[in-house]
Amino acid sequence: MQGNQQQQAYDRGITIFSPDGRLYQVEYAREAVKRGSASVGVRTEDGVVLAADRQARSDLIERDSIEKTHKIDDHIAIASAGHVADARKLIDFARRRAQVNRLRYDEPMGVEPLTKAITDTIQDYTQTGGARPFGVSLIVGGMENGEPRLFETDPSGTPYEWSALAVGGGREDIQEYFEDNYEEGLTLEQGVGLALEGLAEPDDDGLDPDGVDLQTVDEDGVLTVGQDVIEEHLDERDLLGGDDE
C-alpha cells in the first residue's frame, strides 16, 4: 500500500521526479500532443511551409474557426498540435514577445530567440508547483536574417531545429516519409507539395482541401495558402480526398 501511495505522489505532482528520473506529467502532456491531429513544417531554400490537418467533428462547424497555423509577426508563423487552448496562450505570448523585440531593439524577432523564449516559458510550467505543463507542441517557422529557420517546442520546454518535421497524431509515419523524401534546395512550391504529401501519409483516403490549414513564410512575409491552390497540389499528387468521395 505504501508503495502505491508514493507512486501516486510522483504521478500527480508535476514537480516531482519518479525514482527512475522521469516527470510523468510531462510525459502525459506528450501523450496529449499525440492525440491531436498532425501539423508539419518543411524548410526550403526560400522559406518555410507550415501545414496542419484541421479535422472537423461535424459538417456544421465552420472550418475557419479551427485555427492550427497562426501568424506571429510579419516574418514568423506557428503551427500547433495538441490542446488548442494551451496553444493559444503560447501563440499570444509569442505575438507579444515579437512586438516587444521591435519596441526594444527596433528589429524583427529572430526565430531562434523567439523559440527559446517560448520554451523557457513552457519549462517554467514543468517546475512550478500548482502549474500544469502545456499539452501542446509547436512548430515555429520563419525568416531570420534572410534565412529560413524551423523549430519545434515540446511539452518539456526543449527547443529543436529541423529541416522537416511533424508533431501530433501520426507523427512517426509522417516523419518517416520526410526522412525518405526530404532533400536540400527545395523551392517553396516543392516544400508545399512535400508538406501536403507528409500530412496525407497516415491516411489512405487522401486529404480534403478544406481540412488543411497551410501557411508559408518567405522574404515577402506570411501567406495563408488558399483552398484552390491546396486542391491543385493535392490533385496533382492524387491525394485529393474529401466529402465527394
Binding site: K89, D124, T128
Partner: peptide
C-alpha cells in the same frame, strides 16, 4: 505567462 511572474520584459 510565467507562473513565477518574473519573465515580462
Amino acid at each position: 505567462l510565467d507562473p513565477t511572474g518574473d519573465d515580462a520584459i
